[in-house]
Design a protein around this nucleic acid. Structure first.
Lengths: 236, 236
DNA sequence: CGGACGCTTCGGCCCTCACCGAAGCGTCCG
DNA sequence: CGGACGCTTCGGTGAGGGCCGAAGCGTCCG
C-alpha cells in the first residue's frame, strides 16, 4: 500500500478546488442556486477579472460548476445538487468555529433578512425553512427523530397540495441540510426543492432584490397557515 | 460585499487540509475508525516520518484529527463522526470519476475481502453493509424510498436484539453513507454504529488481519439469518 | 462602424508549502 | 546504563499556484 493511491489523489484534487479563498467565496455565493456572471463573481470576491477567469476554469474543469455562455457573458452555476450538498456540508463544518456578527447597519439589515428566509441552493432556509420543517414534523409528515424521511402522510400532503415530486433519479426525496444561521436541520432534497419552486411560482414567497433572501407574501402567509398551520409570527 | 468573507476563509482553510495527497491518504486510511500511529501512516503514505509529523500537526490543529500519546507512540484518529462523514462525502464525490481496478493478485485478494465486508469509520460497509441495509428495508425497519430513517418497527428491532441506541447528542439515529464499491447507500449514524459495535463484540464479525476488512463468522451467519433473514450466500 | 464592455490569455512576480535529511529528545528494553 | 526506536524540530530546496496588468478577441449598442 506504499504505492500512490488514486483515491487519495482524487480527494486531494477535489479539495484543492475549494482550498482557495477566492474560489471558496464563489462556491458560497453560488449556493443561492442561481447563475452568476464571471464579472459579478469577480466583484463579489474582490479580485481582477483575469484572476477570476482562471478560477472559473478550474472549477468548471473540476466538475463543480456548469457554465453557459450567452453573448459576451459567461454564466456559471453549481453543477448539480450533489455539488451543492457538498459545499453545504463543508460550510456547515466551518460554521461552528466562526460565529459571525454583522458590522454595519446595512449588513445587519441584509443579515436579518437572510436570517428570516433565504434559498439554500434550491430549497428554503433560514427561519422560514426551519418553520416549514418543524411544521412538517409536528403534523407527522416528516420523521426527524429516527433519521430524515417523509412519511406516507407526507407524500399524500404533497399530492393534495398539487406539488409534484420527481421520483426518478438517485437524488433522495428528503434530506437534512444544516442551516448556518439556525444551526438546525431543514428540509432539502427533491421535496425541499419542489416546495421551494412551488412557493416561488405561486407567489407564496418573492426574492428580495438580487440577493438570495426571500420574503413571505400575504398570500404565502395564508397558504402556510392553512396547509401547515404555521403562525405568521414565527416567520418574523 | 467586496470585503473579505470569513466564511470563505474558513471554508478554504478546511478544504486546504484535505487538498494535499499525503494528508488525503491519511484521512482515507483513518476512515476505518481506528487509531493509527504516526509511523504507520508515514509508511502507508510513503513519505518520511518528519514530513508526516508536520501533516499530523496541521490536521490536529485544524480539528480533523484527535490525538492520543502513549509512550513513544502518537496515535491519531478522526476527531468525530462529523469529520468522518465529511471525508466519506468527499470520497464519494470522487469515486464516480475514478473507477479503480486492483493491479496485483494480492491486491485483488485484499480488494475482494474489502468488497465483501469492511468498516467505514464506525459502521459496516461493503456487500455486508448493503445486505444488512437491504434486509432492514425489506422488513419495514428502515425507510429508504422517502429519505433515510428508522421506522417504529426498526426502533423495536434494536430493543428486541438488545442493542442499545444512544439518543442523546445531535448525531442522527440513521443516516445514509454512500458505499464506494457498491455505489449504494448503507446504514450509518448512531444505529449503524451500534449495530457494527454489537456485531464485533458478540463475534458476528471479526476483523481480518490489521486491515479494515471484516469477515462474517458462522455464528454471525446464523444470527443475521435469524434476526434479519439474510441469506449467507448474499455475503459471499 | 466605432467605441464600450465582458471575458480570456500571457508574462512575470512573489509567497506558500511539501519534501527531505540531520540532529535532538523522550521512551522502551535488554 | 546504553542502544534501539518513535517522533519532532529545523534549515534548505524546489515546485506550484494565486495575483496583477497589458493586450487581444468577440459581443453589444448607439
Amino acid at each position: 500500500m506504499t504505492t500512490k493511491d488514486p483515491r487519495a489523489a482524487g480527494l486531494a484534487r477535489l479539495a484543492a478546488l475549494a482550498a482557495d479563498e477566492t474560489r471558496a467565496a464563489c462556491l458560497l455565493a453560488l449556493l443561492d442556486g442561481r447563475a452568476w456572471t464571471a464579472g459579478e463573481l469577480a466583484r463579489h470576491a474582490g479580485v481582477a477579472a483575469s484572476t477570476l477567469s482562471e478560477h472559473l476554469g478550474k472549477l468548471v474543469t473540476g466538475g463543480l460548476l456548469a457554465e453557459e455562455r450567452q453573448g459576451r457573458h459567461r454564466y456559471v452555476r453549481l453543477a448539480d445538487a450533489r455539488v451543492a450538498q457538498l459545499v453545504e456540508d463543508l460550510a456547515a463544518q466551518v460554521a461552528p468555529g466562526a460565529a459571525e456578527r454583522p458590522r454595519t447597519l446595512r449588513q445587519a439589515g441584509a443579515g436579518s433578512a437572510m436570517a428570516r428566509g433565504r434559498t439554500c441552493y434550491d430549497h428554503l432556509a433560514g427561519r422560514l425553512g426551519i418553520a416549514v420543517t418543524d411544521a412538517f414534523t409536528a403534523r407527522g409528515l416528516l420523521l426527524q427523530e429516527t433519521g430524515f424521511a417523509l412519511t406516507d402522510a407526507g407524500l399524500r400532503w404533497f399530492g393534495a397540495a398539487g406539488i409534484g415530486l420527481d421520483r426518478r433519479g438517485r437524488r433522495p426525496l428528503a434530506r437534512a441540510c444544516l442551516d448556518w444561521t439556525e444551526r438546525r436541520p431543514h428540509l432539502a432534497g427533491v421535496a425541499g426543492a419542489a416546495l421551494c419552486r412551488h412557493a416561488l411560482e405561486t407567489g407564496w414567497c418573492v426574492r428580495i432584490g438580487s440577493e438570495r433572501a426571500v420574503k413571505v407574501t400575504e398570500a404565502g402567509e395564508r397558504a402556510l397557515s392553512e396547509l401547515l398551520g404555521i403562525d405568521a409570527e414565527a416567520l418574523r
